[in-house]
Amino acid sequence: MFKLCRVVVPIAKSRTLVRSIHTVPVLPQFSKWTKEGVDGLYSPAGFKTSWEDYQKYLTMKLTMLTVGTENETRSPFNIMVSSAKKPYQSCVYHYASQAHNNHLFFEQLIDKSLNKSLPSRLLNERIEKIFGSFEDFKNEILFEAEQLQGQGWVFLVEDFDKSLKILTCNNEGTPYFYARNQSLDLNGPIDTGDYETLTLIKEKLANKDKDYNIPILAINVWDYAYLEDYGINGKADYLEKLWECINWDIINSRLFNPSRV
């Protein structure tokens, strides 16, 4: 998913060293969006904060943190996967996971005026099976995003049995590894459900269970994504507009399609 900018540094005539620098991935609409913003969602300033500056910040930090380490030549996705299991690498994990999530989010955006995409029949079927109707699904996922108290992400994920579910992640939580979903917020009152979820995660870790979740749709609920254009109280407004700018062609292509196998 991520391209690494490979800089070949010749050391001696016989040997070459391949060194990687993380750079901001190129979005197809990038030059248009920097000038005009994302129609129906971001002003140019809002786009600059949420993508140009923030992604640059994440990738630069990632490069600086991984130089000379085992993660040096890996892509943000691979760094995220490997560091998610190592508590002592949580700082690297933060930048890798955020870089991946933010790219996943921006990949699926399209100008509202150009957006003619619709969820495929397959996606619709799967959603209706779980959520009742597409409208219910929309309300459900946007409700989850609005309810999130701090920063975070809300994903529609595809499980190993190809069923869909909504996953809420606090801060830099990732859908790819259950112990790093960060769905629990234990800063306030805690109930038995939280405790049971926590115990379950510990059991799964002890059993070395694998996680086969794949994110299909990502909703960005970080301040970077809406503060510039919508203000501190503008989350609901932002989410409503975001829904109009989702390119369902991309979402459809992320879904497992048995006929394509």
């Binding site: 989850e144 579910k165 909504i166 809420t168 979903n181 629990l184 009152p189 109930d191 459900g193 109280n233």
Partner: peptide, 19 residues
Amino acid sequence: MLRVSVLGKRCLMPSLCIQ
């Protein structure tokens, strides 16, 4: 409607309409 929310405790919070 099936709720997939991990946090059962998340009770309904008011919508963010400012009045």
